[in-house]
Design a protein around this nucleic acid. Structure first.
Length: 276
DNA sequence: CACTGTAGGATTGTTACTTCA
DNA sequence: TCTGAAGTAACAATCCTACAG
């Protein structure tokens, strides 16, 4: 145990510790010139120092610098309880372990620093894998979106090339929600299920790729309509009025982002969601 | 046996906070 | 009450050596 005290007070070249316990003053604070000492800090005390401190014996080797497993175990246990060290606890631990309070403080300091590093690494890994998942989700949804757009286009062309008698007129509200585009007269009109309540929305299954779950769902643009996919409003999504349902860029997370964000929150813990 | 990367104890400089004259 | 100096603790960065591979 005593061997752990090699550096403390034993090396006049290295550091000055005045006072007892952890109530020490570092040389710099006392106005001592530490330059010389810090340029070359001998890791171990000289033989003379060791003799002087009564630390030397036949078995004294440099190995003894490390804390013993038992000391580390107790320190770890203490750290688990509380990673900050109050003065009383420090003194008590030091006494129990046969260490200088300063050593205990340094140990806790290093332990905190290294714990923090580990935590940061873990957080990085988690964020990275979440990011990768989102990226791949995004890519597959974009692909599906392209596919669906092509499908819509070809179906529209088919419909327009046929001589289909006009069906019933869609309600105004439906048309508005689907993009606020009035159906020009003389064009084919189909019932729009997108925003007609419970049965309506096109559902994207983000596991097996987006699919139109309801076979009756369809969307078609007419000639006056920009040939961009307009994401239907999800039932659960509130329309704040800022978006008329038209997007220059089809946002592929329209029906899935809630789900993903919450998953992320679970995966990332409080950090993401506690951000203002 | 030399070399290299890593772990861990220790040091140094800085900052924030508290105390006291 | 305000203020500046000094004491103290925490932290980041770094040093330095032991040790394993």
């Amino acid at each position: 145990m005593e061997s752990n005290r090699l550096l403390f007070g034993s090396n006049s070249n290295s550091m000055f510790f005045l006072g007892n316990g952890d109530n020490y003053f570092r040389g710099t604070r006392m106005g001592f010139n530490m330059e010389e000492g810090s340029k070359k800090r001998p890791f171990l005390s000289s033989l003379d120092d060791m003799l002087e401190e009564e630390y030397y014996d036949e078995q004294m080797t440099e190995k003894k610098r490390r804390l013993s497993p038992e000391q580390v175990r107790m320190l770890e246990r203490s750290f688990e309880e509380e990673n900050k060290l109050e003065p009383e606890r420090k003194t008590e631990l030091a006494k129990k372990l046969g260490l200088q309070p300063r050593q205990v403080a340094v140990w806790f300091q290093n332990r905190r620093a290294r714990w923090k590093t580990k935590t940061l690494e873990r957080d990085y890994d988690r964020l990275k894998s979440s990011f990768d998942v989102l990226t791949s989700d995004f890519d597959s949804i974009v692909k599906e979106n392209e596919k669906l757009k092509a499908q819509v286009l070809s179906l529209t062309e088919k419909l327009q090339s046929k001589d289909v008698p006009e069906i019933s007129t869609i309600g105004d509200s439906t048309v508005k929600e689907a993009g606020d585009v009035p159906a020009p007269s003389g064009h084919v009109k189909l019932e729009d299920h997108f925003s007609s309540g419970s049965g309506g929305s096109a559902v994207v299954d983000d596991h097996d790729g987006p699919q139109l779950v309801d076979s009756g769902d369809s969307y078609f643009p007419d000639d006056d309509y920009p040939h961009e996919y307009v994401a239907p409003m999800d039932q659960s999504e509130e329309d704040d009025g800022s978006d008329n349902g038209q997007n220059d860029f089809p946002y592929p997370f329209a029906t899935t982002d809630h789900h993903h964000h919450h998953e992320e929150a679970d995966a990332l813990g409080w950090w993401v969601w506690s951000q203002p």
